[in-house]
Protein backbone atom coordinates (compact mmCIF):
# COMPACT_ATOMS: atom_id res chain seq x y z
CA UNK A 1 0.00 0.00 0.00
CA UNK A 2 1.15 3.52 -0.77
CA UNK A 3 0.92 4.79 2.80
CA UNK A 4 3.13 1.92 4.05
CA UNK A 5 5.80 2.97 1.53
CA UNK A 6 5.50 6.63 2.60
CA UNK A 7 5.83 5.61 6.24
CA UNK A 8 8.99 3.64 5.44
CA UNK A 9 10.49 6.62 3.60
CA UNK A 10 9.51 9.02 6.40
CA UNK A 11 11.79 7.20 8.87
CA UNK A 12 14.92 8.54 7.18
CA UNK A 13 17.53 10.66 8.91
CA UNK A 14 18.42 13.26 6.27
CA UNK A 15 18.57 17.02 6.96
CA UNK A 16 15.00 17.41 5.65
CA UNK A 17 13.75 14.50 7.78
CA UNK A 18 15.17 16.09 10.95
CA UNK A 19 13.53 19.49 10.45
CA UNK A 20 10.64 20.81 12.54
CA UNK A 21 7.39 19.50 10.97
CA UNK A 22 5.83 22.99 11.14
CA UNK A 23 8.71 24.31 8.97
CA UNK A 24 8.11 21.53 6.43
CA UNK A 25 4.33 22.07 6.38
CA UNK A 26 4.81 25.84 5.90
CA UNK A 27 7.38 25.26 3.15
CA UNK A 28 5.04 22.80 1.40
CA UNK A 29 2.17 25.31 1.55
CA UNK A 30 4.37 28.05 0.03
CA UNK A 31 5.37 25.69 -2.81
CA UNK A 32 1.73 24.67 -3.36
CA UNK A 33 0.50 28.29 -3.46
CA UNK A 34 3.28 29.18 -5.91
CA UNK A 35 2.30 26.30 -8.19
CA UNK A 36 -1.45 26.95 -7.87
CA UNK A 37 -1.08 30.60 -8.89
CA UNK A 38 0.88 29.74 -12.07
CA UNK A 39 -1.75 30.83 -14.58
CA UNK A 40 -0.96 30.30 -17.38
CA UNK A 41 1.81 27.82 -16.73
CA UNK A 42 5.23 29.19 -17.64
CA UNK A 43 6.86 26.02 -18.94
CA UNK A 44 10.46 26.88 -18.09
CA UNK A 45 9.42 27.75 -14.55
CA UNK A 46 7.37 24.54 -14.28
CA UNK A 47 10.48 22.62 -15.37
CA UNK A 48 12.54 24.53 -12.81
CA UNK A 49 10.04 23.56 -10.08
CA UNK A 50 10.32 19.95 -11.24
CA UNK A 51 14.14 20.08 -11.06
CA UNK A 52 13.98 21.80 -7.66
CA UNK A 53 11.61 19.17 -6.22
CA UNK A 54 13.77 16.39 -7.72
CA UNK A 55 16.85 17.93 -6.07
CA UNK A 56 14.93 18.03 -2.77
CA UNK A 57 14.09 14.34 -3.21
CA UNK A 58 17.74 13.49 -3.83
CA UNK A 59 18.94 15.58 -0.87
CA UNK A 60 16.44 13.76 1.37
CA UNK A 61 18.04 10.48 0.16
CA UNK A 62 14.72 9.22 -1.22
CA UNK A 63 14.34 6.99 -4.31
CA UNK A 64 13.76 9.62 -7.03
CA UNK A 65 11.92 7.46 -9.55
CA UNK A 66 9.61 5.87 -6.98
CA UNK A 67 8.76 9.23 -5.40
CA UNK A 68 7.89 10.62 -8.84
CA UNK A 69 5.83 7.51 -9.60
CA UNK A 70 3.93 7.94 -6.32
CA UNK A 71 2.95 11.44 -7.46
CA UNK A 72 1.50 10.10 -10.72
CA UNK A 73 -1.55 8.90 -8.74
CA UNK A 74 -3.24 12.19 -9.71
CA UNK A 75 -2.59 11.83 -13.43
CA UNK A 76 -5.55 9.65 -14.53
CA UNK A 77 -8.02 12.29 -13.28
CA UNK A 78 -5.92 15.10 -14.79
CA UNK A 79 -5.74 13.29 -18.15
CA UNK A 80 -9.55 13.27 -18.41
CA UNK A 81 -9.60 17.08 -18.16
CA UNK A 82 -6.62 17.34 -20.50
CA UNK A 83 -8.54 15.38 -23.15
CA UNK A 84 -11.60 17.60 -22.57
CA UNK A 85 -9.46 20.72 -22.96
CA UNK A 86 -7.96 19.29 -26.14
CA UNK A 87 -11.48 18.68 -27.48
CA UNK A 88 -12.44 22.24 -26.52
CA UNK A 89 -9.49 23.58 -28.54
CA UNK A 90 -7.45 24.70 -25.52
CA UNK A 91 -4.76 22.02 -25.17
CA UNK A 92 -2.44 24.36 -23.24
CA UNK A 93 -5.04 24.58 -20.47
CA UNK A 94 -5.17 20.78 -20.21
CA UNK A 95 -1.37 20.54 -20.11
CA UNK A 96 -1.33 23.22 -17.41
CA UNK A 97 -3.73 21.14 -15.28
CA UNK A 98 -1.47 18.08 -15.66
CA UNK A 99 1.65 20.09 -14.76
CA UNK A 100 0.08 21.79 -11.74
CA UNK A 101 -1.57 18.58 -10.46
CA UNK A 102 1.64 16.54 -10.79
CA UNK A 103 3.93 19.17 -9.21
CA UNK A 104 1.44 19.66 -6.35
CA UNK A 105 1.20 15.91 -5.74
CA UNK A 106 5.01 15.67 -5.82
CA UNK A 107 5.18 18.36 -3.11
CA UNK A 108 2.68 16.48 -0.92
CA UNK A 109 4.52 13.17 -1.42
CA UNK A 110 7.80 14.88 -0.45
CA UNK A 111 6.23 16.31 2.70
CA UNK A 112 4.87 12.91 3.72
CA UNK A 113 8.06 11.06 2.72
CA UNK A 114 10.14 13.24 5.06
CA UNK A 115 7.69 13.48 7.99
CA UNK A 116 6.29 10.61 10.05
CA UNK A 117 2.57 10.70 10.74
CA UNK A 118 2.93 11.48 14.49
CA UNK A 119 5.44 14.25 13.66
CA UNK A 120 3.08 15.68 11.05
CA UNK A 121 0.26 15.82 13.59
CA UNK A 122 2.62 17.45 16.11
CA UNK A 123 3.53 20.03 13.45
CA UNK A 124 -0.13 20.73 12.71
CA UNK A 125 -0.77 21.09 16.44
CA UNK A 126 2.06 23.61 16.75
CA UNK A 127 0.34 25.52 13.91
CA UNK A 128 -2.82 25.55 16.09
CA UNK A 129 -4.89 22.99 14.15
CA UNK A 130 -7.79 21.75 16.35
CA UNK A 131 -6.38 19.13 18.73
CA UNK A 132 -9.65 17.20 18.72
CA UNK A 133 -9.45 16.76 14.94
CA UNK A 134 -5.80 15.69 15.18
CA UNK A 135 -6.64 13.07 17.81
CA UNK A 136 -9.37 11.67 15.57
CA UNK A 137 -6.86 11.55 12.69
CA UNK A 138 -4.37 9.76 14.92
CA UNK A 139 -6.86 7.05 15.88
CA UNK A 140 -8.11 6.80 12.30
CA UNK A 141 -4.58 6.19 11.04
CA UNK A 142 -3.82 3.70 13.81
CA UNK A 143 -6.82 1.47 13.05
CA UNK A 144 -7.03 2.06 9.31
CA UNK A 145 -4.91 -0.91 8.31
CA UNK A 146 -6.56 -3.23 10.86
CA UNK A 147 -10.07 -2.54 9.58
CA UNK A 148 -9.04 -2.45 5.92
CA UNK A 149 -7.48 -5.91 6.36
CA UNK A 150 -10.64 -7.10 8.09
CA UNK A 151 -12.81 -5.74 5.25
CA UNK A 152 -10.48 -7.41 2.73
CA UNK A 153 -10.76 -10.74 4.57
CA UNK A 154 -14.56 -10.45 4.63
CA UNK A 155 -14.59 -9.62 0.93
CA UNK A 156 -12.39 -12.63 0.13
CA UNK A 157 -14.51 -14.91 2.32
CA UNK A 158 -17.68 -13.71 0.59
CA UNK A 159 -16.05 -14.14 -2.82
CA UNK A 160 -15.00 -17.70 -2.00
CA UNK A 161 -18.53 -18.54 -0.86
CA UNK A 162 -20.45 -16.78 -3.62
CA UNK A 163 -18.06 -17.10 -6.57
CA UNK A 164 -17.25 -13.48 -7.30
CA UNK A 165 -17.83 -10.29 -5.36
CA UNK A 166 -20.00 -8.91 -8.15
CA UNK A 167 -22.76 -11.48 -7.66
CA UNK A 168 -23.11 -10.73 -3.95
CA UNK A 169 -26.61 -9.64 -3.16
CA UNK A 170 -27.02 -6.02 -2.16
CA UNK A 171 -28.43 -6.89 1.26
CA UNK A 172 -25.67 -9.40 1.96
CA UNK A 173 -23.05 -6.73 1.22
CA UNK A 174 -24.92 -4.30 3.49
CA UNK A 175 -24.95 -6.99 6.18
CA UNK A 176 -21.18 -7.38 5.76
CA UNK A 177 -20.77 -3.62 6.25
CA UNK A 178 -22.99 -3.89 9.34
CA UNK A 179 -20.86 -6.72 10.75
CA UNK A 180 -17.74 -4.67 10.04
CA UNK A 181 -19.31 -1.75 11.89
CA UNK A 182 -20.20 -3.99 14.84
CA UNK A 183 -16.61 -5.24 15.03
CA UNK A 184 -15.26 -1.67 14.72
CA UNK A 185 -17.61 -0.45 17.46
CA UNK A 186 -16.62 -3.31 19.81
CA UNK A 187 -12.97 -2.66 19.04
CA UNK A 188 -13.37 1.07 19.75
CA UNK A 189 -14.89 0.35 23.16
CA UNK A 190 -12.17 -2.20 23.96
CA UNK A 191 -9.52 0.34 22.92
CA UNK A 192 -11.02 2.98 25.18
CA UNK A 193 -11.22 0.60 28.14
CA UNK A 194 -7.58 -0.41 27.64
CA UNK A 195 -6.53 3.23 27.34
CA UNK A 196 -8.57 4.26 30.40
CA UNK A 197 -6.88 1.45 32.34
CA UNK A 198 -3.51 2.94 31.36
CA UNK A 199 -4.55 6.40 32.59
CA UNK A 200 -5.91 8.03 29.39
CA UNK A 201 -7.73 11.26 30.23
CA UNK A 202 -8.36 12.59 26.72
CA UNK A 203 -4.83 13.80 25.96
CA UNK A 204 -2.36 11.61 24.11
CA UNK A 205 1.15 12.14 25.56
CA UNK A 206 3.88 13.18 23.15
CA UNK A 207 7.11 11.22 23.13
CA UNK A 208 9.02 13.82 21.13
CA UNK A 209 9.04 17.54 21.85
CA UNK A 210 9.96 19.76 18.90
CA UNK A 211 11.81 23.05 19.20
CA UNK A 212 12.18 25.46 16.31
CA UNK A 213 15.94 25.73 15.71
CA UNK A 214 17.80 28.15 13.41
CA UNK A 215 18.35 25.19 11.06
CA UNK A 216 14.56 24.92 10.65
CA UNK A 217 14.36 28.58 9.70
CA UNK A 218 17.27 28.08 7.28
CA UNK A 219 15.42 25.13 5.73
CA UNK A 220 12.26 27.21 5.34
CA UNK A 221 14.17 30.06 3.68
CA UNK A 222 16.13 27.62 1.48
CA UNK A 223 12.88 26.14 0.15
CA UNK A 224 10.68 29.24 0.04
CA UNK A 225 13.35 31.58 -1.36
CA UNK A 226 14.00 29.84 -4.71
CA UNK A 227 10.32 28.89 -5.10
CA UNK A 228 9.07 32.47 -4.64
CA UNK A 229 11.90 33.76 -6.84
CA UNK A 230 10.89 31.33 -9.61
CA UNK A 231 7.29 32.41 -9.23
CA UNK A 232 8.42 36.02 -9.58
CA UNK A 233 10.31 35.16 -12.80
CA UNK A 234 7.20 33.44 -14.22
CA UNK A 235 5.41 36.78 -14.37
Amino acid sequence: MRHARLELWSRGTSFAHRRHPAAKITAALIVLVSIATLRPVHWRVALAYFVFLTAMTASARLPILRVHLAATAVLPFALVFAVLSLAAGTPERGLAIIARAWLSALTTVLLMATTTQPDLLAGLESLHAPRFLLQVMQFLYRYLLVLVEEAGAMRDAAASRAGTVGVLEFRRAAGAAGVLFGRAWTRANAIHQAMAARGFTGQIPRFRVFRFHPADLAFLVAVAGPVVALRFIAG
Partner: peptide, 24 residues
Amino acid sequence: DHHRVPLMGVMGAFVFAAQMLNFP
Protein backbone atom coordinates in the same frame (compact mmCIF):
# COMPACT_ATOMS: atom_id res chain seq x y z
CA ASP B 1 -16.66 12.52 26.64
CA HIS B 2 -13.05 11.75 25.89
CA HIS B 3 -14.00 8.14 25.21
CA ARG B 4 -15.66 9.33 21.99
CA VAL B 5 -12.27 10.19 20.48
CA PRO B 6 -11.19 6.56 19.90
CA LEU B 7 -14.73 5.82 18.72
CA MET B 8 -14.65 8.65 16.17
CA GLY B 9 -11.23 7.58 14.91
CA VAL B 10 -12.29 3.95 14.56
CA MET B 11 -15.51 5.04 12.82
CA GLY B 12 -13.36 6.96 10.33
CA ALA B 13 -11.32 3.81 9.74
CA PHE B 14 -14.61 1.90 9.39
CA VAL B 15 -15.78 4.22 6.60
CA PHE B 16 -12.40 3.78 4.88
CA ALA B 17 -12.72 -0.01 5.18
CA ALA B 18 -16.42 -0.04 4.19
CA GLN B 19 -15.41 1.70 0.95
CA MET B 20 -13.60 -1.57 0.09
CA LEU B 21 -16.84 -3.56 0.15
CA ASN B 22 -18.37 -3.60 -3.32
CA PHE B 23 -22.10 -3.41 -3.77
CA PRO B 24 -23.61 -4.70 -7.04
